[in-house]
Every structure is written in C-alpha cells, then in structure tokens.
C-alpha cells in the first residue's frame, strides 16, 4: 500500500469512478432486471421462451463483445453517434461505460431473479390470493419469499461489472482523470511494468468486491434466520 501513497488523490478518483460507474449501472440493472425476472418467472406470455433464451445468452455474453457493440453504436460513424441524440451518452465518457455495464449486468440480475422466483413454492401464489392479495401484492410476496435469491442476483450483477475490464476499456478509453477505473488502471500499470502499483490496485478491487459480498452475505444470513 505504501507504494501508492503520494498518489492519493488520483487513486481516490479512480476508486470513486469505479464505484460510481458500477454502482449506477447496478442500480439501473436492478430496477429493470428484478421486474423482468419476476415477469419471466411468474407469467406466461407469447415470446416468453425467446425472452428467456435471450436473457440466458446475455448472462454468458463476453463483456468485451458488449463493449464492442456499444462502441460501434456510439462512435461517430455508428448508428446512434451519427444521429446525435441529446440523451445518448458519448463515447469515452463514464456514461458510455455505465451503458455497457448495464447491458452486462441486466441479464444477470434478470436471469437469477427469474430462477429465484421460480424456486418459490407454486402453491404460495393461490394461498396469498385467497388471503386477499392483489396481483401486485402476490408478486411482491413471492419476491420477498425469494429474497435470498434476489439478493444473490444483484450480487452477481455487481460482481459481473466491478471486475470487468474489456467493455470499460473499449468504450471508456482509460483516460486519466476521466474514464480510468480500477480494472483499466491495473492493465495500464501492468503494461508499464509498475507491478507494485498494479498489485495495490488489485488489492483495492479485491477488498471492494469482498466487502460488498460480505455485507450481502450478512443480509442473506439475516433472511435465513427468520
């Protein structure tokens, strides 16, 4: 750790950007991923099987390829880049990195949520309805029953993006002070031969991942004890 002292403010910047980009991406993925998972897991509709297949594909998609797609979409000669839509993020900005990470994390959150709600006893739904639950209240009750699995889905989403390097490198560009995050900084420092620095960044990344998972495991533990 002493190796990086003196570079404190720059380091803090990198850590904060990592957390901000992945945090916002996770938030968005959770907000759209949990309802998607509940919908896929609890209802039958036309195109459901195709949607499930797409989610599963998305869960296993290489992040670097997603990065490539987003790059092509956003670049000036790309589909959205050339349209110049005001709210579309520009390439080599944190917003572009968030977009890529949402595409990576969303299928993870949706897919694991779907599996979690499907594991809840199917008889529960009718019994909740019989107690007077509306459709929304029933869905909510099932999500609450599946909470351990739903939390795991969110963790999986976070794990998938905080440690991801390919996509953020492509669409962010690893610009110092602007789009440099922990993973891309590790790549750079390693290439420069600054193994000490790279290792220190790696330790920070590890401890972020570890402490997040630790907190979530504690939450799960509480859910188990009920």
């Amino acid at each position: 750790m002493t190796l990086i002292i003196g570079d404190d403010s720059r380091l803090a910047e990198i850590v904060l950007l990592s957390l901000r980009v992945s945090g916002i991406a996770l938030l968005i993925s959770t907000i759209i991923g949990i309802p998607t998972g509940a919908l896929l897991g609890l209802t039958r509709f036309r195109g459901r099987r195709l949607s499930v297949a797409l989610v599963y594909t998305g869960m296993a998609f290489p992040p670097v390829v997603i990065g490539l797609f987003v790059y092509l979409l956003l670049s000036r000669s790309g589909v959205f880049g050339s349209l110049n839509i005001a709210w579309m993020p520009r390439l080599f900005t944190p917003e572009a990195m968030i977009l890529a990470q949402v595409i990576i994390a969303y299928p993870l959150v949706a897919g694991f949520t779907m599996a979690a709600v499907q594991a809840v006893d199917p008889a529960l739904r009718m019994q909740m309805q019989s107690l007077g639950a509306s459709r929304w209240q029933t869905t909510w009750a099932i999500l609450e029953e599946a909470r351990v699995g739903v939390i795991a889905a969110v963790v999986a989403g976070f794990g998938g993006i905080i440690s991801e390097v390919g996509a953020v490198m492509l669409v962010g560009g690893n610009i110092a002070g602007q789009t440099r995050v922990l993973t891309t900084a590790i790549v750079l420092e390693t290439n420069k031969g600054n193994f000490g620095m790279a290792l220190a960044l790696g330790v920070i990344l590890l401890s972020i991942a570890f402490s997040t998972n630790f907190i979530i495991l504690r939450l799960e533990g509480r859910a188990f004890d009920e």
Partner: peptide
Amino acid sequence: VTTVFQRPVLLK
C-alpha cells in the same frame, strides 16, 4: 372469503 388449504404454505 378465505381458504385454509390442505398443505399450508407459510411465509418465511
């Protein structure tokens, strides 16, 4: 109206 079923499913 409400029902008590043969196999109750309780919430965790």
